[in-house]
Structure formats: C-alpha cells, structure tokens
Design a protein around this nucleic acid. Structure first.
Lengths: 246, 246
DNA sequence: CGGGTAGTTGAACCAGTTCAAATCTGGTGG
DNA sequence: CCACCAGATTTGAACTGGTTCAACTACCCG
C-alpha cells in the first residue's frame, strides 16, 4: 500500500502548448496555436510514482497529458480518502495555490505524462489568470457533485459514466452505443472516492451488470450509453457533469 | 419549505471597499484602504429571501457583509442538499462563473447584507483576478473537507467549531474559554449539509453536550474551546480549517 | 397566552459495514 | 508456453449505526 517513492525525475523541457496535440484538451476554448502558454514537460511517471506528497511546497499546476492521477489525503483515523481522479486534459493542484503548500498527496495510477505550469507564472499573463479562474470555477461546481448520492448504485453509476464519457471509447454494437474503458483504479479506490466500502462498490457493480447497464470483466468496463429519452436516461442524468475533475 | 420570493430589490449604490469596515474581512491580506475594489451594495435580505435561484444567469460574485446565506440544490429524489453556508466575509458564487449560470440556489437564513462584484468586472484588474483565484483555491481546499467524516460526532464537532471560530464571540468563564454563537440554521439543515438525518445531528449534539464539549439551548450554542495541547485538541483538529466557506 | 414550528426521544428496521474465506486476474519466472 | 504467486475481486453471513416513523416537548412569535 505504501507507494515506493521512485518518482522518475529526468530532464524536463520547456514546451509550448502550441505544438502539443493535447492543446485543445488542456485549454478548452483556446484559439488553437495561439502560442500563449508555456509549460514544462515533466518526466513520465510510472504507476505508484509520487507527483507530490502532503506537506510539499506548491510550485506549479499540472496538466495531465495522458494516464491517471489520484489525489488523496489520510484522515486522522488513518483512512485514505480520495479527493480527485485526474485524467487527460485535467488540471491538478489548484487547491494548494492559496496556501503555497500541498495538504494532500498525488500519485500516478498508471503510466502518466504531465506538463507543469510553474507558479508564480513566469509571464504576467492576465488571460492565463482568467482561464485558471474559470477552471477553478468548474472544479468547484464538480466538487459539489462528488458527494455520495442517495444509494450506492446511483453513486457508482454516476461515477462510471463520468469516467467513461471522459476517457472511454465509443463502440457501436448493432444499434446500441457502448463505451469501453479499462479502469485505472481498484474497487477499493472507487469506494474511497465515493465513501463506500470496497464490497459495496463491488455488489453495486454487479447489480448494474444484472440490470444490463454494463459488462465488467476485471477492470475492463463496457458501459451502455442509454439512448436519449429512455427511462434509464432520467436516472442516469443524476450524474450529468462534464468530467470527474477539471 | 418553499421560500417565498419576496427578495427585496431596492436601490443599490456603488461603494468602495475602502470605506467599509468589512474591508479586511472580505479581502484578507489586502493593503488597507487601497481603494482598489469597486462593489455594489445590495439591498438587505430578510430570512428566506432568495439571492439567486437555480437556472438564474450569473452576473456577479457576492460578499457577505453580515448575516448568513445557504447555497443548496435539489437532487433528483427531491431532497435538498446544502453545499455551502456563507457568513460575514465569505465569497459566494464562484462555482457559477465558468458556466455563466447558477446550478444551485441561495437564500438568506437570517437578515443579511451583501455586496456584489459585477461580472465581468468593470475594470481590467489583474490583481483582482489573482485574489479571486486564491479565494477559489481556498474554497477548493475547504470543499475537500466538507465530506462526512467517520462518525456523526466528528462531523458535528468539526462543523460547530468551524462556525464558532468563524463567527462566534469568545467568552471567558474562569480559566476556560468558551465561544458563544446563535446558529442561523436548523438541525435539519446541519444534517442536509453533513449528510446525516436531523435526528442523528440532534443525538450527536446531545452526546457532545454530555461530554462537556458544549452547552446547547435551542439554537444558542456555547462551545468549549479546548486548551491547546489537551487530549480534546487532537480530536478537534480533525476539523481544522479556516472557515466553513470562503 | 396560544398556535405552530423546531427540536427531542424511543423503538423497529435495514442498508452498508465488517469479517472471513473462496475465487479470480495479471504478471513473473522457469 | 505454462505453473505459480500476490494482490484484487467476489461472495456469504453476522452485525451495527444511522434512518425512519411516531410521539412528545420546548421554544419562538404573534
């Protein structure tokens, strides 16, 4: 459980988002190739590698280029509570900006590539601040939804849909649309995020499976994308949100 | 339960935070009387008055000068979930900034005075953006803590302490320090915020009372401020945060 | 003082947790 | 390529803390 601190710290390079295929993911709405934003490529993290540790000084925000990061804290009773899962295009670390120090830890769940936006920002860029403020606003809105819903089935359904629509691939089988996704986190971690026990998540997924809402095999997930207007849609829209994080 | 929409909409006046006794509360860290920030005084809201309603267009952030506001949403099962309580000095509405539309509602719990910072801001002020970004960062950090803790006693204790240290008055009785505060919200609302039933909050407060941690009589609260280093402190620090909102 | 809402208490119920054990999976080394 | 291992997942069963329902009481406002 204790992650080995073998975070790779290889050479980093300054890069311009301009030339990055992820530009539109990291900066939704930005005019393509505006050449505005300077970030640093970070060395690739392998699963379990630490991005930052509780107590570390805050010195920049991260964008996920690919992979998955979990942000978590250890509460007084020693339990791990997961605060955020971040995937490609997501912004990480905003909550540490004000204090200048991280109050939680972040580790890679799978091989992950990141860019870093150093802080304070090198250039005095008002547009950048505005974009970050909007990102913060989005994260605040989403955090409000992350509370556990009425029952575990609703929570898990909502969680899986968020992940699937965020990073999954669509697949057509006959007239139905399914989303295929390999989950980067364990059942236990889903539980730690949603506020349920591992076993409850497990049983919940089984129920969803027997409802025909999804197929699971290990961490591979095939999620039914309910046709708009179906009865299932009304239920599912409980979890309507843009992404799992921002 | 349905609040009457008799929000008072009287004449508002542009004001400068400069001349306001709340300046240092609304803008912690700002150089006093810098004359930078322009806001509008909003008409006083009475208890139950609506500040904004779900679906309303976002057109500015609010600062609470005095009183108390609750921000809540109605989930699919018709239950009210409270997302934020805001008191004097707190900033409201950040989560609607990105979308340009409120996805939740806000009403006054008691008589409340507010200032509004129109959006987009009239002046192109980089320092303002930076401050707001920091405020957003603080709110993100705090939102992470608002999840329900291991047991209701810990949650309620933490909640009451946050409120008390934020808006309560200190009182010395012998060598002990107590904080006196009249709660602006009902037991039910505390439950809707913490994720417990009204009765559970009630019993929890009773347990804290028999522990000698507090005195309650209706909504009047007298909370023991544990001396630093006492056993109680270790427990209490579970809820260590700056304010209940930002 | 009287009515109505908010708060409190008790008891039964039940969803989710806990504990324990079986089963499966993915990855490793031979 | 296959056997094997450690960790992850699943299942079952007992337990328990929080919810629910139903009175009852206290407080606040007119």
């Amino acid at each position: 459980m204790a992650p080995k601190n073998n975070a790779l710290r290889l050479a980093t390079a300054t890069a311009n988002c301009d030339c990055c295929f992820m530009e539109s993911h990291c900066w939704p709405g930005i005019e393509a190739h505006s050449g505005e934003v300077l970030v640093k490529r970070e060395p690739t993290l392998m699963a379990e590698n630490v991005l930052w540790r509780e107590g570390a000084q805050f010195n920049g925000l991260y964008f996920v280029r690919s992979g998955a990061i979990k942000v978590y804290e250890i509460d007084l009773s020693g339990e791990e509570r997961i605060l955020q899962f971040a995937f490609a295009g997501d912004l990480l670390g905003l909550e540490a900006l004000a204090a200048g120090r991280h109050e939680n830890s972040a580790v890679a769940l799978i091989e992950t590539m990141l860019c870093k936006l150093p802080w304070p920002p090198p250039a005095d860029d008002r547009a950048l601040l505005e974009r970050l403020l909007k990102r913060a606003s989005v994260q605040l809105r989403q955090r409000a939804r992350a509370t556990r819903l009425a029952d575990p089935d609703a929570s898990v359904r909502s969680f899986l849909h968020e992940i699937a629509t965020h990073i999954g691939r669509e697949e057509r089988v006959g007239e139905n649309v399914w989303i295929r996704q390999r989950l980067p986190m364990s059942r236990l971690e889903i539980g730690q995020y949603l506020g349920y026990a591992e076993e409850t998540v497990c049983r919940s997924m089984r129920r969803l499976q027997s409802n025909g809402e999804l197929e699971v095999s290990g961490r591979t997930l095939l999620l039914r994308q309910p046709p708009v207007g179906s009865a299932a849609t009304a239920v599912r829209s409980a979890g309507r949100t843009e992404t799992l994080s921002a």
